[in-house]
Deep mutational scan, measured.
Amino acid sequence: LVRYRTISKIPQITLNFVDLKGDPFLASPTSDREIIAPKIKERTHNVTEKVTQVLSLGADVLPEYKLQAPRIHRWTILHYSPFKAVWDWLILLLVIYTAVFTPYSAAFLLKETEEGPPATECGYACQPLAVVDLIVDIMFIVDILINFRTTYVNANEEVVSHPGRIAVHYFKGWFLIDMVAAIPFDLLIFGSGSEELIGLLKTARLLRLVRVARKLDRYSEYGAAVLFLLMCTFALIAHWLACIWYAIGNMEQPHMDSRIGWLHNLGDQIGKPYNSSGLGGPSIKDKYVTALYFTFSSLTSVGFGNVSPNTNSEKIFSICVMLIGSLMYASIFGNVSAIIQRLYSGTARYHTQMLRVREFIRFHQIPNPLRQRLEEYFQHAWSYTNGIDMNAVLKGFPECLQADICLHLNRSLLQHCKPFRGATKGCLRALAMKFKTTHAPPGDTLVHAGDLLTALYFISRGSIEILRGDVVVAILGKNDIFGEPLNLYARPGKSNGDVRALTYCDLHKIHR
């Protein structure tokens, strides 16, 4: 019993810090008490220290592992850092350059016999395009090294910054494609005289377009951006097909006994025919423009016929181009109408809503002055909100995010209106959640004399007048207030005048 009563005193000691020596009952000389009392004092002292730490809000209350900052290894790049964003855009520009100039170089340097010394005699450094290609190869190699040090988000939505895990993730992902696209074939085969082989191998750079397509997928929600990307894709495919079309004609031209190829026909049409040795002929500019003209006309199913396939190889390629053109029509131009419709969806919704308003007016036989006010209010409210119901949009977000959005939407009023000066951010967040926005066209009466005042109004834009009878008592403008002081009276009061809008007004109100 003594032991039980001794232990039962522990909660009292913990909360009230009572010393055991003052209790005459606990001072009985028993061996059990002498053993338990020192333990009680020690526990009391420890609990006292913990309570003191909690009340003082000291940093040592938290466990040590929670006080440590997340460790980022040296030379690790955050995937959302500004440097990584700028670097990704730079790589994107280099990939676009590669997609345009690599097929052009591979096709127009394929057994090209233009006048001038061969590239091997001039030297590697004197070729501007080769120098640019070398810079692109170096940048792609540097990009691989950067990807080995860039964080990523795993399946659990955690940012991984450990170098080993980053390397394994990159090896399992895009490393092989990036490595093949970054191989400097110019340096590996330079001086061997195989410019045709170098041009063909350099087309491996186009593998990076797969990554670019995935990154550009984030802009699919913007109709104008999608339309622009589709047109660029169409032009890029036409450019690639033009390079292939020229390569076919250029390879067949020296081996044909009869002059029936499209390059021969082009030379005869523009007065620059090929001679018996295969030299001469149109310039590279004429060849490229004509090839691009043929691919565009074939892809769009126009086909004027002034550039036509004559050999079997050219006919087979033309059939493939027609098939590609039909697929592009289905996948690209078939979506253009939907994209344009999405661009004008706001206008369509406006006309639909206006039609419903006019049908309501016609069905209920609203008189002319009231009908005009109804239409003007709808037009003004639509121009202010673009038909978007803010309350319906915010309803799907958590309250903390709703408060931040409301604070942002009402920031101008909260910053410049005098009653809100000096208020804490928590108070402003709470008030912003209570605001209701209303609009009024010129001549609209917001409050009639004798109406119950259940709200306090803040003028965000425009001006109003307060009338008693036919006498203008006051004219209020931006950041002015009218209405009933909230919670100042037990019952809502009545208006002693009319409140009429002089201009288009936007008002925020808080109800009782």
Results as ranks from 00 to 15, higher is better:
325 G>A: 08
159 V>D: 01
101 F>G: 01
378 F>L: 08
414 L>G: 03
326 S>W: 07
285 K>H: 04
268 D>M: 13
174 W>M: 10
442 P>W: 01
68 Q>E: 06
125 A>T: 12
150 T>W: 01
290 T>H: 05
186 D>S: 13
260 I>T: 04
249 G>E: 01
182 A>Y: 01
72 I>P: 11
198 I>T: 12
301 S>Y: 01
417 C>H: 15
401 L>S: 01
327 L>A: 03
369 P>F: 03
350 Y>M: 04
108 F>A: 01
445 T>H: 10
124 Y>A: 05
403 A>V: 04
284 I>Y: 01
117 P>S: 08
416 H>C: 12
111 K>M: 11
162 H>G: 09
221 E>C: 08
330 A>Y: 04
438 T>W: 07
106 A>Y: 11
337 S>R: 06
377 Y>F: 05
167 A>M: 08
342 R>T: 09
394 L>F: 13
125 A>K: 15
359 E>D: 04
412 S>E: 12
182 A>H: 01
417 C>K: 05
209 L>E: 01
281 G>V: 01
86 V>I: 14
425 K>W: 01
107 A>F: 01
350 Y>T: 01
408 H>G: 02
83 F>H: 15
400 C>M: 09
311 T>I: 01
227 L>A: 05
258 S>N: 12
287 K>Q: 01
75 W>N: 04
81 S>Q: 03
183 I>G: 05
335 N>T: 03
311 T>M: 01
150 T>P: 01
328 M>V: 09
136 V>T: 06
290 T>K: 01
343 L>A: 12
163 P>L: 05
168 V>R: 14
340 I>E: 01
396 G>F: 03
196 E>V: 13
430 A>D: 04
345 S>R: 06
131 V>L: 14
414 L>I: 09
224 A>Y: 14
186 D>P: 15
81 S>A: 12
277 S>T: 08
256 M>T: 14
207 L>R: 14
370 L>Q: 01
351 H>S: 05
78 L>R: 09
410 N>R: 11
262 W>G: 01
92 L>D: 01
439 H>T: 14
328 M>P: 01
347 T>L: 06
244 I>C: 03
168 V>Q: 10
176 L>Q: 03
350 Y>S: 02
417 C>T: 12
439 H>I: 07
446 L>V: 08
77 I>M: 06
130 A>E: 07
218 R>I: 05
200 L>S: 04
223 G>R: 04
260 I>D: 03
270 I>N: 01
404 D>V: 02
196 E>G: 15
221 E>D: 09
83 F>V: 08
327 L>K: 01
290 T>Q: 01
375 E>N: 08
133 D>G: 07
358 R>H: 15
363 F>E: 01
67 L>N: 07
174 W>F: 10
184 P>S: 01
86 V>C: 12
97 Y>C: 01
373 R>K: 13
372 Q>F: 11
241 L>G: 01
365 Q>R: 11
300 T>N: 04
69 A>P: 05
420 F>K: 01
181 A>D: 01
260 I>G: 06
353 Q>N: 03
249 G>M: 01
159 V>G: 01
360 F>C: 02
91 I>F: 01
187 L>M: 14
433 M>W: 04
105 S>Q: 15
201 L>R: 01
301 S>W: 01
376 E>V: 07
96 I>C: 07
93 L>W: 01
346 G>H: 04
88 D>R: 01
290 T>L: 01
274 Y>A: 01
224 A>T: 12
402 Q>T: 03
325 G>R: 01
253 Q>N: 14
181 A>I: 01
236 L>S: 01
196 E>F: 05
440 A>G: 03
221 E>V: 01
402 Q>C: 01
314 E>M: 01
249 G>F: 03
282 P>H: 05
91 I>L: 01
205 R>T: 04
274 Y>K: 01
86 V>L: 15
160 V>I: 14
169 H>P: 01
89 W>E: 01
276 S>D: 14
378 F>Y: 11
139 M>E: 01
99 A>D: 01
201 L>N: 01
301 S>K: 12
262 W>H: 01
300 T>Q: 01
187 L>C: 08
132 V>M: 14
333 F>N: 04
388 I>H: 10
425 K>R: 09
77 I>V: 07
429 R>S: 04
275 N>C: 01
117 P>W: 06
212 V>K: 03
441 P>L: 10
347 T>D: 10
339 I>C: 06
103 P>E: 01
64 E>W: 11
112 E>R: 14
126 C>Y: 01
282 P>G: 01
330 A>C: 03
127 Q>D: 14
349 R>L: 06
330 A>T: 01
232 C>K: 01
438 T>A: 11
375 E>V: 10
264 H>K: 06
245 W>N: 01
111 K>P: 14
263 L>H: 01
168 V>G: 10
321 V>K: 01
107 A>K: 01
326 S>R: 03
372 Q>C: 06
251 M>Y: 13
110 L>M: 15
215 K>W: 04
266 L>N: 01
211 R>L: 01
234 F>V: 04
428 L>H: 04
423 A>G: 06
263 L>M: 01
97 Y>M: 01
297 S>T: 11
209 L>C: 05
342 R>N: 04
449 A>I: 08
430 A>I: 07
431 L>R: 02
121 E>H: 15
293 Y>H: 13
299 L>P: 01
225 A>W: 15
81 S>W: 07
311 T>H: 01
193 G>A: 06
295 T>G: 01
418 K>C: 04
398 P>S: 04
134 L>H: 05
302 V>Y: 01
97 Y>V: 01
143 D>Q: 01
127 Q>T: 03
264 H>A: 14
159 V>M: 01
265 N>T: 14
160 V>P: 01
162 H>Q: 10
187 L>E: 11
286 D>N: 01
247 A>C: 01
418 K>D: 15
166 I>A: 03
133 D>K: 01
166 I>Q: 01
207 L>Q: 01
198 I>H: 06
228 F>Y: 01
339 I>Q: 04
364 H>M: 03
250 N>I: 14
419 P>N: 06
70 P>I: 05
379 Q>Y: 07
134 L>F: 06
440 A>T: 09
140 F>M: 01
207 L>S: 13
403 A>D: 01
215 K>R: 14
335 N>L: 04
396 G>I: 07
412 S>P: 11
264 H>E: 03
334 G>F: 02
71 R>H: 08
84 K>F: 04
338 A>P: 06
271 G>Y: 02
182 A>L: 13
380 H>L: 05
83 F>Y: 15
383 S>Q: 10
195 E>Y: 10
141 I>Y: 01
312 N>S: 01
406 C>R: 08
230 L>M: 12
173 G>M: 03
199 G>P: 04
160 V>G: 01
71 R>I: 14
107 A>M: 03
81 S>I: 01
114 E>I: 09
292 L>N: 01
187 L>K: 15
275 N>G: 03
144 I>R: 01
404 D>M: 02
347 T>A: 10
105 S>I: 04
433 M>V: 07
287 K>Y: 03
69 A>S: 07
347 T>G: 10
91 I>D: 01
418 K>P: 10
298 S>W: 01
236 L>Y: 01
270 I>F: 03
412 S>C: 07
363 F>H: 11
225 A>F: 05
102 T>S: 01
322 M>R: 03
396 G>T: 13
437 T>V: 11
113 T>P: 06
301 S>Q: 10
334 G>K: 06
403 A>T: 05
426 G>D: 04
182 A>I: 06
246 Y>K: 01
144 I>D: 01
132 V>S: 03
159 V>I: 10
143 D>V: 01
331 S>K: 02
303 G>E: 01
184 P>F: 01
360 F>L: 04
344 Y>R: 04
190 F>I: 12
269 Q>G: 01
190 F>E: 12
342 R>S: 06
228 F>A: 09
183 I>C: 05
87 W>T: 01
419 P>G: 10
164 G>Q: 11
307 V>W: 01
333 F>T: 03
72 I>N: 03
98 T>A: 01
209 L>T: 11
256 M>D: 15
329 Y>N: 15
168 V>A: 09
163 P>S: 06
370 L>D: 01
437 T>H: 11
358 R>L: 03
289 V>F: 01
70 P>R: 05
396 G>L: 03
434 K>R: 11
230 L>R: 01
250 N>D: 01
200 L>W: 06
254 P>A: 15
